[in-house]
Write a protein that binds this DNA or RNA. Sequence first.
DNA 1: TTCCTTGCAAATACTTTGCAGACTG
DNA 2: CAGTCTGCAAAGTATTTGCAAGGAA
Lengths: 156, 156
Amino acid sequence: MRLHQADPLDMSHQPKLATVHYRQQLRDLGYRCTRPREAVLCTLLETDRPMTASEVFDRIQQDCTRIDLATVYRNLHMLLDLGLVMQLSFAHESQFRYAWSERRGHAQYVGCVQCGEIVSLPVPSLRRLKQFIRNKTGFLVNLQSFELSGLCPDCQ
Amino acid sequence: MRLHQADPLDMSHQPKLATVHYRQQLRDLGYRCTRPREAVLCTLLETDRPMTASEVFDRIQQDCTRIDLATVYRNLHMLLDLGLVMQLSFAHESQFRYAWSERRGHAQYVGCVQCGEIVSLPVPSLRRLKQFIRNKTGFLVNLQSFELSGLCPDCQ
DNA sequence: TTCCTTGCAAATACTTTGCAGACTG
DNA sequence: CAGTCTGCAAAGTATTTGCAAGGAA
Protein backbone atom coordinates (compact mmCIF):
# COMPACT_ATOMS: atom_id res chain seq x y z
CA MET A 1 0.00 0.00 0.00
CA ARG A 2 1.59 3.21 -1.07
CA LEU A 3 0.89 6.53 0.54
CA HIS A 4 -0.57 9.16 -1.67
CA GLN A 5 1.34 12.41 -1.39
CA ALA A 6 -0.25 15.27 -3.25
CA ASP A 7 0.21 18.95 -3.82
CA PRO A 8 -2.41 20.49 -1.55
CA LEU A 9 -3.49 22.82 -4.33
CA ASP A 10 -3.81 20.06 -6.81
CA MET A 11 -5.05 17.18 -4.76
CA SER A 12 -7.50 15.47 -6.97
CA HIS A 13 -5.64 15.39 -10.20
CA GLN A 14 -4.36 12.03 -9.08
CA PRO A 15 -6.89 9.36 -8.31
CA LYS A 16 -7.16 8.83 -4.59
CA LEU A 17 -6.29 5.43 -3.24
CA ALA A 18 -9.83 4.54 -2.30
CA THR A 19 -11.15 5.11 -5.77
CA VAL A 20 -8.61 3.08 -7.65
CA HIS A 21 -10.69 0.02 -7.05
CA TYR A 22 -13.74 1.60 -8.59
CA ARG A 23 -12.10 2.93 -11.73
CA GLN A 24 -12.06 -0.45 -13.37
CA GLN A 25 -15.50 -1.24 -12.08
CA LEU A 26 -16.86 1.86 -13.75
CA ARG A 27 -15.02 1.18 -16.98
CA ASP A 28 -16.33 -2.35 -17.02
CA LEU A 29 -19.82 -0.97 -16.82
CA GLY A 30 -19.16 1.21 -19.82
CA TYR A 31 -18.67 4.45 -17.94
CA ARG A 32 -15.72 6.72 -18.46
CA CYS A 33 -13.45 7.83 -15.67
CA THR A 34 -13.37 11.58 -15.83
CA ARG A 35 -11.94 13.97 -13.33
CA PRO A 36 -15.27 15.37 -12.18
CA ARG A 37 -16.73 11.91 -11.86
CA GLU A 38 -13.86 10.68 -9.75
CA ALA A 39 -14.01 13.78 -7.62
CA VAL A 40 -17.62 13.03 -6.75
CA LEU A 41 -16.87 9.40 -6.09
CA CYS A 42 -13.86 10.29 -3.94
CA THR A 43 -15.67 12.86 -1.93
CA LEU A 44 -18.42 10.48 -0.99
CA LEU A 45 -15.93 7.75 -0.28
CA GLU A 46 -13.88 9.95 2.02
CA THR A 47 -16.72 11.43 3.98
CA ASP A 48 -18.56 9.62 6.71
CA ARG A 49 -21.43 12.03 6.94
CA PRO A 50 -24.15 11.79 4.29
CA MET A 51 -23.73 14.87 2.10
CA THR A 52 -26.00 17.09 0.09
CA ALA A 53 -25.18 17.71 -3.56
CA SER A 54 -23.97 21.18 -2.79
CA GLU A 55 -21.78 19.96 0.05
CA VAL A 56 -20.15 17.58 -2.39
CA PHE A 57 -19.83 20.46 -4.83
CA ASP A 58 -18.26 22.76 -2.22
CA ARG A 59 -15.82 20.14 -1.10
CA ILE A 60 -14.66 19.51 -4.63
CA GLN A 61 -14.24 23.22 -5.29
CA GLN A 62 -12.09 23.49 -2.17
CA ASP A 63 -9.75 20.98 -3.69
CA CYS A 64 -9.36 23.44 -6.55
CA THR A 65 -11.09 21.13 -8.94
CA ARG A 66 -13.49 22.93 -11.21
CA ILE A 67 -16.85 21.27 -11.41
CA ASP A 68 -20.41 22.22 -12.13
CA LEU A 69 -23.27 21.55 -9.75
CA ALA A 70 -25.20 19.88 -12.58
CA THR A 71 -22.31 17.48 -13.04
CA VAL A 72 -22.40 16.64 -9.36
CA TYR A 73 -26.09 15.85 -9.61
CA ARG A 74 -25.59 13.80 -12.76
CA ASN A 75 -22.87 11.71 -11.23
CA LEU A 76 -24.70 11.29 -7.99
CA HIS A 77 -27.60 9.85 -9.95
CA MET A 78 -25.35 7.65 -11.97
CA LEU A 79 -23.87 6.22 -8.77
CA LEU A 80 -27.38 5.92 -7.39
CA ASP A 81 -28.47 3.89 -10.40
CA LEU A 82 -25.49 1.63 -10.00
CA GLY A 83 -26.39 1.17 -6.36
CA LEU A 84 -23.04 2.52 -5.23
CA VAL A 85 -24.55 5.37 -3.27
CA MET A 86 -27.86 5.79 -1.55
CA GLN A 87 -30.13 8.74 -1.32
CA LEU A 88 -31.28 9.73 2.14
CA SER A 89 -33.89 12.17 3.29
CA PHE A 90 -34.06 13.48 6.79
CA ALA A 91 -37.18 15.00 8.27
CA HIS A 92 -37.17 18.80 8.23
CA GLU A 93 -34.53 18.87 5.55
CA SER A 94 -35.72 19.88 2.14
CA GLN A 95 -32.92 18.36 0.18
CA PHE A 96 -31.49 14.94 -0.37
CA ARG A 97 -28.27 13.60 1.06
CA TYR A 98 -26.07 10.97 -0.48
CA ALA A 99 -23.87 8.37 1.15
CA TRP A 100 -21.64 5.62 -0.07
CA SER A 101 -23.72 2.51 0.27
CA GLU A 102 -21.02 -0.03 0.79
CA ARG A 103 -20.83 0.98 4.41
CA ARG A 104 -23.15 -1.82 5.42
CA GLY A 105 -23.92 -2.16 9.07
CA HIS A 106 -24.03 1.54 9.55
CA ALA A 107 -26.36 2.58 6.82
CA GLN A 108 -28.82 3.95 9.34
CA TYR A 109 -28.58 7.49 10.57
CA VAL A 110 -29.95 9.85 13.15
CA GLY A 111 -29.86 13.56 12.47
CA CYS A 112 -30.30 16.45 14.86
CA VAL A 113 -33.02 18.86 13.81
CA GLN A 114 -31.37 21.63 15.77
CA CYS A 115 -27.68 21.61 14.88
CA GLY A 116 -27.74 19.28 11.92
CA GLU A 117 -25.30 16.77 13.33
CA ILE A 118 -25.68 13.34 11.83
CA VAL A 119 -24.42 10.13 13.35
CA SER A 120 -24.70 6.64 12.05
CA LEU A 121 -26.70 4.12 13.93
CA PRO A 122 -24.87 0.91 14.77
CA VAL A 123 -28.02 -1.10 14.64
CA PRO A 124 -26.93 -4.69 14.26
CA SER A 125 -30.26 -5.77 12.95
CA LEU A 126 -33.60 -4.15 12.48
CA ARG A 127 -34.93 -7.46 11.31
CA ARG A 128 -37.56 -7.57 13.99
CA LEU A 129 -38.89 -4.14 13.09
CA LYS A 130 -38.96 -5.13 9.46
CA GLN A 131 -40.84 -8.31 10.21
CA PHE A 132 -43.29 -6.48 12.42
CA ILE A 133 -44.09 -4.02 9.65
CA ARG A 134 -44.38 -6.85 7.17
CA ASN A 135 -46.90 -8.62 9.34
CA LYS A 136 -48.97 -5.56 10.06
CA THR A 137 -49.01 -3.86 6.69
CA GLY A 138 -47.63 -6.22 4.10
CA PHE A 139 -45.05 -3.59 3.19
CA LEU A 140 -41.52 -4.68 2.51
CA VAL A 141 -39.59 -1.81 3.97
CA ASN A 142 -36.15 -0.78 3.00
CA LEU A 143 -34.28 -0.34 6.23
CA GLN A 144 -31.16 -0.03 4.17
CA SER A 145 -31.85 3.65 4.20
CA PHE A 146 -33.33 4.54 7.49
CA GLU A 147 -33.22 8.09 8.66
CA LEU A 148 -34.50 9.35 11.96
CA SER A 149 -34.52 12.83 13.33
CA GLY A 150 -34.27 14.02 16.87
CA LEU A 151 -32.07 15.99 19.20
CA CYS A 152 -28.42 15.23 19.68
CA PRO A 153 -27.05 15.11 23.23
CA ASP A 154 -25.76 18.69 23.00
CA CYS A 155 -29.02 20.15 21.83
CA GLN A 156 -31.33 18.43 24.30
CA MET B 1 -74.32 13.19 16.08
CA ARG B 2 -75.93 14.77 13.11
CA LEU B 3 -75.06 13.97 9.56
CA HIS B 4 -73.62 16.76 7.51
CA GLN B 5 -75.43 17.10 4.24
CA ALA B 6 -73.85 19.56 1.84
CA ASP B 7 -74.23 20.78 -1.68
CA PRO B 8 -71.43 18.96 -3.52
CA LEU B 9 -70.50 22.11 -5.37
CA ASP B 10 -70.44 24.27 -2.31
CA MET B 11 -69.13 21.98 0.35
CA SER B 12 -66.75 24.09 2.31
CA HIS B 13 -68.70 27.26 2.68
CA GLN B 14 -70.11 25.84 5.85
CA PRO B 15 -67.66 24.77 8.51
CA LYS B 16 -67.44 21.04 8.63
CA LEU B 17 -68.37 19.24 11.78
CA ALA B 18 -64.88 18.22 12.59
CA THR B 19 -63.52 21.74 12.54
CA VAL B 20 -66.10 23.35 14.74
CA HIS B 21 -64.10 22.29 17.73
CA TYR B 22 -60.99 24.01 16.44
CA ARG B 23 -62.57 27.32 15.51
CA GLN B 24 -62.69 28.48 19.11
CA GLN B 25 -59.27 27.04 19.78
CA LEU B 26 -57.81 29.13 16.97
CA ARG B 27 -59.64 32.26 18.06
CA ASP B 28 -58.42 31.79 21.61
CA LEU B 29 -54.90 31.72 20.28
CA GLY B 30 -55.47 34.99 18.50
CA TYR B 31 -55.91 33.59 15.02
CA ARG B 32 -58.82 34.49 12.81
CA CYS B 33 -61.08 31.90 11.27
CA THR B 34 -61.08 32.56 7.58
CA ARG B 35 -62.50 30.43 4.84
CA PRO B 36 -59.13 29.46 3.35
CA ARG B 37 -57.75 28.65 6.76
CA GLU B 38 -60.67 26.41 7.62
CA ALA B 39 -60.44 24.74 4.25
CA VAL B 40 -56.85 23.74 4.96
CA LEU B 41 -57.70 22.56 8.43
CA CYS B 42 -60.70 20.62 7.17
CA THR B 43 -58.86 18.98 4.38
CA LEU B 44 -56.18 17.66 6.66
CA LEU B 45 -58.72 16.59 9.21
CA GLU B 46 -60.75 14.67 6.67
CA THR B 47 -57.89 12.92 4.98
CA ASP B 48 -56.12 9.95 6.42
CA ARG B 49 -53.22 10.02 4.07
CA PRO B 50 -50.47 12.57 4.73
CA MET B 51 -50.80 15.20 1.99
CA THR B 52 -48.44 17.49 0.14
CA ALA B 53 -49.19 21.20 0.05
CA SER B 54 -50.33 20.96 -3.52
CA GLU B 55 -52.58 17.99 -2.80
CA VAL B 56 -54.26 20.08 -0.13
CA PHE B 57 -54.49 22.91 -2.62
CA ASP B 58 -56.03 20.70 -5.31
CA ARG B 59 -58.55 19.22 -2.95
CA ILE B 60 -59.68 22.64 -1.84
CA GLN B 61 -60.00 23.82 -5.42
CA GLN B 62 -62.19 20.81 -6.19
CA ASP B 63 -64.58 21.99 -3.52
CA CYS B 64 -64.92 25.19 -5.55
CA THR B 65 -63.18 27.19 -2.90
CA ARG B 66 -60.69 29.65 -4.31
CA ILE B 67 -57.37 29.58 -2.56
CA ASP B 68 -53.77 30.39 -3.31
CA LEU B 69 -50.95 27.90 -2.91
CA ALA B 70 -49.05 30.42 -0.80
CA THR B 71 -51.99 30.57 1.55
CA VAL B 72 -51.96 26.82 1.87
CA TYR B 73 -48.29 26.91 2.80
CA ARG B 74 -48.80 29.74 5.25
CA ASN B 75 -51.60 27.95 7.02
CA LEU B 76 -49.81 24.66 7.01
CA HIS B 77 -46.93 26.34 8.79
CA MET B 78 -49.20 28.05 11.22
CA LEU B 79 -50.75 24.70 12.13
CA LEU B 80 -47.27 23.25 12.30
CA ASP B 81 -46.18 25.90 14.78
CA LEU B 82 -49.23 25.21 16.88
CA GLY B 83 -48.36 21.55 16.81
CA LEU B 84 -51.70 20.67 15.25
CA VAL B 85 -50.13 19.13 12.18
CA MET B 86 -46.83 17.44 11.59
CA GLN B 87 -44.48 17.60 8.68
CA LEU B 88 -43.35 14.29 7.22
CA SER B 89 -40.72 13.46 4.67
CA PHE B 90 -40.59 10.19 2.84
CA ALA B 91 -37.48 8.89 1.17
CA HIS B 92 -37.36 9.55 -2.58
CA GLU B 93 -39.97 12.26 -2.31
CA SER B 94 -38.72 15.76 -2.79
CA GLN B 95 -41.52 17.50 -1.02
CA PHE B 96 -43.00 17.53 2.45
CA ARG B 97 -46.26 15.97 3.49
CA TYR B 98 -48.50 17.14 6.27
CA ALA B 99 -50.78 15.18 8.55
CA TRP B 100 -53.07 16.00 11.41
CA SER B 101 -51.06 15.21 14.48
CA GLU B 102 -53.85 14.36 16.87
CA ARG B 103 -54.03 10.93 15.34
CA ARG B 104 -51.75 9.48 18.00
CA GLY B 105 -51.02 5.82 17.85
CA HIS B 106 -50.84 5.90 14.11
CA ALA B 107 -48.45 8.72 13.52
CA GLN B 108 -46.02 6.39 11.84
CA TYR B 109 -46.23 5.69 8.16
CA VAL B 110 -44.85 3.46 5.45
CA GLY B 111 -44.85 4.68 1.87
CA CYS B 112 -44.40 2.73 -1.32
CA VAL B 113 -41.63 4.05 -3.52
CA GLN B 114 -43.29 2.55 -6.57
CA CYS B 115 -46.95 3.50 -6.49
CA GLY B 116 -46.87 6.10 -3.75
CA GLU B 117 -49.35 4.39 -1.49
CA ILE B 118 -49.01 5.36 2.14
CA VAL B 119 -50.36 3.41 5.06
CA SER B 120 -50.15 4.19 8.73
CA LEU B 121 -48.22 1.92 10.96
CA PRO B 122 -50.10 0.61 13.98
CA VAL B 123 -46.99 0.39 16.04
CA PRO B 124 -48.11 0.17 19.64
CA SER B 125 -44.79 1.31 20.94
CA LEU B 126 -41.44 1.99 19.47
CA ARG B 127 -40.17 2.67 22.94
CA ARG B 128 -37.60 -0.06 22.69
CA LEU B 129 -36.16 1.31 19.45
CA LYS B 130 -36.06 4.76 20.95
CA GLN B 131 -34.27 3.51 24.04
CA PHE B 132 -31.83 1.55 21.93
CA ILE B 133 -30.92 4.62 19.93
CA ARG B 134 -30.65 6.66 23.10
CA ASN B 135 -28.21 4.21 24.57
CA LYS B 136 -26.11 3.89 21.46
CA THR B 137 -25.96 7.49 20.29
CA GLY B 138 -27.34 9.73 22.99
CA PHE B 139 -29.85 11.07 20.48
CA LEU B 140 -33.38 11.64 21.59
CA VAL B 141 -35.28 10.66 18.49
CA ASN B 142 -38.68 11.85 17.55
CA LEU B 143 -40.62 8.75 16.61
CA GLN B 144 -43.70 10.90 16.55
CA SER B 145 -42.92 11.40 12.94
CA PHE B 146 -41.47 8.26 11.59
CA GLU B 147 -41.53 7.57 7.90
CA LEU B 148 -40.29 4.47 6.19
CA SER B 149 -40.23 3.61 2.55
CA GLY B 150 -40.50 0.31 0.85
CA LEU B 151 -42.72 -1.66 -1.46
CA CYS B 152 -46.38 -2.19 -0.84
CA PRO B 153 -47.81 -5.69 -1.27
CA ASP B 154 -49.06 -4.93 -4.78
CA CYS B 155 -45.73 -3.62 -6.02
CA GLN B 156 -43.52 -6.36 -4.64
C1' DT C 1 -61.75 50.50 12.65
C1' DT C 2 -57.88 47.67 13.43
C1' DC C 3 -54.71 44.69 11.86
C1' DC C 4 -54.58 39.84 10.59
C1' DT C 5 -55.01 37.30 6.10
C1' DT C 6 -55.27 36.79 1.51
C1' DG C 7 -54.18 36.75 -3.54
C1' DC C 8 -50.94 37.87 -6.70
C1' DA C 9 -46.43 38.19 -8.27
C1' DA C 10 -41.85 37.78 -7.71
C1' DA C 11 -37.98 35.69 -5.31
C1' DT C 12 -35.45 31.75 -3.58
C1' DA C 13 -33.74 27.02 -3.14
C1' DC C 14 -32.96 22.65 -5.03
C1' DT C 15 -32.79 19.80 -9.04
C1' DT C 16 -33.11 18.69 -13.97
C1' DT C 17 -32.43 19.39 -18.88
C1' DG C 18 -30.63 21.05 -23.66
C1' DC C 19 -26.85 21.85 -26.21
C1' DA C 20 -22.33 22.61 -28.16
C1' DG C 21 -17.74 21.84 -27.19
C1' DA C 22 -14.19 18.85 -24.52
C1' DC C 23 -12.38 14.61 -23.36
C1' DT C 24 -11.92 9.33 -22.77
C1' DG C 25 -10.93 5.08 -24.63
C1' DC D 1 -12.52 9.02 -34.20
C1' DA D 2 -16.92 7.85 -31.91
C1' DG D 3 -19.54 8.44 -28.39
C1' DT D 4 -19.63 9.86 -23.58
C1' DC D 5 -19.29 13.68 -20.39
C1' DT D 6 -18.89 18.41 -19.11
C1' DG D 7 -19.84 23.40 -18.38
C1' DC D 8 -23.01 26.79 -19.06
C1' DA D 9 -27.46 28.52 -19.26
C1' DA D 10 -32.07 27.99 -18.88
C1' DA D 11 -36.09 25.49 -17.29
C1' DG D 12 -38.65 23.07 -13.75
C1' DT D 13 -40.49 22.16 -9.16
C1' DA D 14 -41.19 23.17 -4.24
C1' DT D 15 -41.43 26.78 -1.05
C1' DT D 16 -41.13 31.54 0.77
C1' DT D 17 -41.75 36.51 0.83
C1' DG D 18 -43.42 41.51 -0.20
C1' DC D 19 -47.21 44.18 -0.69
C1' DA D 20 -51.64 46.28 -1.27
C1' DA D 21 -56.39 45.03 -0.99
C1' DG D 22 -59.82 42.33 1.65
C1' DG D 23 -62.13 40.63 5.60
C1' DA D 24 -62.79 39.09 10.71
C1' DA D 25 -63.63 40.70 15.24
